[in-house]
Amino acid sequence: MEQEDRELGREPDPGSPLASGSEVDGRPEADPAEMTAVDTGFQSLDPRIIRLWQVGNLIFCVAVLAAAAVGTAFVWTQSTISRLAPIWMVPAALVLVFVLVFWLPPRRYATRLYRMGARVLELRKGIFWKTSVMIPLSRLQHVDLNQGPLERKWGLAVLEIHTAGTSNATHKLEGLDYETGKGLREKLIEAADLEEK
């Protein structure tokens, strides 16, 4: 058990749940406050996913800006307001492009992590809303490996893990190298004994 703990990259429990659960209002000193505090043994995605996200977001920005430009042109022809009024859209567009294309993807990459343990797969994500999902491998129903057009070109893949759950039944792991994804899928299926079922 202890060996498996190490394998899963677990830290020893920060005190028994009983002790910290019954504490009176005060900081749980010994406890870490964030997920990053206990991160070890996690794997990152393929860094090429940053470029993929950038391209995707750029396409999105272009679409939004084109729609905005059409709208602006329409307002221009129809109204009597100053021709310079829509100028505020230029900085807005710049901010949008900066955030979605340059600021977000690398940060997102830094927070997307996964860890394949002996019996549990853990997925992490979130910049503002941090989430960690632990999926017991014995709960896997089926595992898909998908590729979009750009992903096919760059040799990336999306792993889609299905459980029998309801509100959170499908888990996606984007940005794997295709071969890594295939290997991970094999490993997951093997660990889950899907063939036996």
Partner: peptide, 12 residues
């Protein structure tokens, strides 16, 4: 089926 942990900014 799965166990998740979520922290919002204020949670953290």
């Amino acid at each position: 089926q799965s166990v998740s942990l979520t922290q919002t900014y204020f949670d953290r």
